[in-house]
Simulated scan of single mutants.
Amino acid sequence: MTSKCHEMTPGGITPVQQMVSSCSGAILTSLLVTPLDVVKIRLQAQHNPFLKGRCFVYCNGLMDHLCLCENGNSKVWYKAPGHFSGTLDAFIKIIRHEGIKSLWSGLPPTLVMAVPATVIYFTCYDQLCVALKARMEGQTEMAPLFAGAIARVGSVTVISPLELIRTKLQSQKQSYRELGACIRTAVESAGWLSLWRGWGPTLLRDVPFSAMYWYNYEKGKAWLCERNNTTEATFAITFLSGAASGAIASIATLPFDVVKTRRQVELGELQALNCNYTIRPLSSSTWSVMSRIVAESGPRGLFAGFLPRLIKVAPACAIMISTYEFGKAFFHKQNQETGLFRLQPGNS
Rank of each mutant, 00 (worst) to 15 (best):
R96I: 13
I92E: 12
C55W: 03
Q17E: 15
S74F: 01
K52Y: 01
L162F: 15
K312Q: 07
P201Q: 04
S288Y: 00
G246Q: 04
P144A: 02
W223F: 10
L68V: 04
V33P: 00
G346V: 04
K168H: 13
P35F: 10
F341L: 09
G72N: 15
R184Y: 07
A329N: 13
F326M: 14
E325S: 14
G305M: 11
V289H: 05
G138C: 08
E266L: 14
T118G: 11
N228R: 13
S175M: 06
A181T: 09
W287R: 09
T29G: 13
V119P: 08
T234L: 07
I321Q: 12
C67I: 12
S210M: 06
V156K: 04
A147L: 06
G346D: 06
T167H: 11
C69L: 01
M142I: 15
D126Y: 11
S245K: 02
N48H: 08
A316Q: 02
L51R: 14
E296D: 15
S245R: 01
I41F: 09
A329C: 01
T2F: 10
G148D: 08
F326H: 12
R309A: 12
E337C: 13
F331S: 01
T261F: 03
F235W: 10
G339I: 14
P201S: 07
H65N: 11
P345T: 03
L203F: 01
E266P: 00
G327N: 07
F122L: 14
P81N: 08
V57E: 05
S245N: 03
S21T: 11
A114D: 06
H6V: 06
A90P: 04
H47M: 05
K328F: 04
T157E: 03
S322D: 07
P116M: 09
C275E: 13
I120D: 06
L267I: 03
S322N: 04
V20Q: 01
F239S: 12
S102D: 07
R262M: 04
N60R: 00
T110G: 09
E141L: 08
L310Q: 00
S322A: 14
W192N: 00
F303K: 03
G106C: 03
N48G: 07
S85T: 15
M290K: 02
P208C: 05
T157F: 15
I100R: 12
T9L: 14
P281K: 12
G298L: 10
S297T: 05
I319V: 15
G268S: 07
C69S: 15
V289F: 12
M320I: 09
W77H: 13
C182N: 08
G82R: 13
L162H: 02
R135P: 04
G298V: 10
K260V: 00
G154I: 13
A26Q: 03
C5S: 09
N48S: 10
K333S: 11
L107W: 02
I95E: 00
D89H: 15
V289I: 14
L128Y: 08
R342W: 09
T157S: 12
F306E: 05
A134F: 00
V258P: 02
L203Q: 06
A114E: 04
E226I: 00
Y213S: 04
R292F: 00
H6M: 12
S160I: 01
I92V: 15
F341D: 05
E70T: 14
